[in-house]
Amino acid sequence: MRLTVNGAQHHLVGLDPRTTLLDALREHLHLTGAKKGCDHGQCGACTVLLDGRRVNSCLILAITQQDAEVTTVEGLGRRGEPHPVQQGFLDHDGFQCGYCTPGQICSAIGMLDEAGKGWPSAVTEDDDLLSDREIRERMSGNLCRCGAYPAMVPAIRQAAGR
């Protein structure tokens, strides 16, 4: 089967159909940025972008995504030139241990795109889709056991240009 990740096409020979996208990335392509936290779609550490949309790669079978473009944290920015969300996390110290960070960053990128399209959230009351309350609600699918949330909010706010 084929898998397109960060712009490069890979051919995975003899891949077991049970292999999740997360395991294909980590164990077969050795892209270990996306993390296996809970492996049940409850923590968000495995978040990647699938055709630009944020998803939990632990709940997706790799074999179903042969026509998709997958972007992982390894595909963001360039050496010495981080993605604005990565820069925001650096500037605001948006992590402690760092385990959830690749998922947080991919999720934030997908989230900013959703807000940019005008998608509402459960707390939307007006046209301000990126207030701190909105950022917290929209990022609620990513857990951080260190509790670095207070630094992630301004990191994401900065990446949003606010």
């Binding site: 968000g44 944020r54 939990n56 709940l59 997706i60 999720s107 997908g110 509402p120 929209r138 699918g141």
Partner: peptide, 16 residues
């Protein structure tokens, strides 16, 4: 309906 959908799961799960 929109509110019920947004009250459920997370952004990542709703995308799938």
């Amino acid at each position: 309906l929109s509110q019920a959908l947004l009250a459920g799961a997370s952004g990542q799960l709703r995308n799938m």
